[in-house]
């Protein structure tokens, strides 16, 4: 069964998202939290990374972290779904293990 991956680092500063994407097998899900949410915004130089991931993975972003950072009204990469903390909990229970790419 598939894994839920979480990424909490800005893709502009750190390599965690790259490492996560290279190890996430097809069908696993990716949740962007904390500074990781910047990867979900469309029109950036890293947006292409997530665009190529949404075909093979469900990609989620934590809404409260988007809003906190002034990104709540910015356009997200197509195919990304926003969840709240309750949605985060649901993902943890729906997928059968969690890997945090710290």
């Amino acid at each position: 069964m598939a894994m839920l991956h979480t990424v909490n680092k800005s893709p502009f500063e750190r390599r965690s998202l790259d490492s996560c994407l290279r190890h996430a097998v097809k069908g696993s899900a990716i949740l962007l939290i904390e500074d990781g949410i910047y990867a979900a915004i469309d029109g950036t130089v890293v947006a292409e990374k997530i665009k190529s991931a949404v075909g093979d993975h469900k990609v989620y972003v934590l809404g409260p972290d988007l809003k906190a950072r002034g990104m709540g009204d910015h356009k997200l990469v197509d195919g990304i779904e926003t969840v709240d903390y309750a949605g985060f909990v649901d993902l943890v229970t729906e997928y059968d293990k969690v890997q945090s790419w710290l």
């Binding site: 996430a24 696993s28 890997q99 710290l102």
Partner: peptide, 18 residues
């Protein structure tokens, strides 16, 4: 290989990252 590593991760039940 990276691909084998990805598969190995999927086989686990508890993943501890620090």
């Amino acid at each position: 290989s990276r691909e084998q590593m990805a598969d190995l991760m999927e086989e686990q039940e508890v993943i501890l990252s620090f």
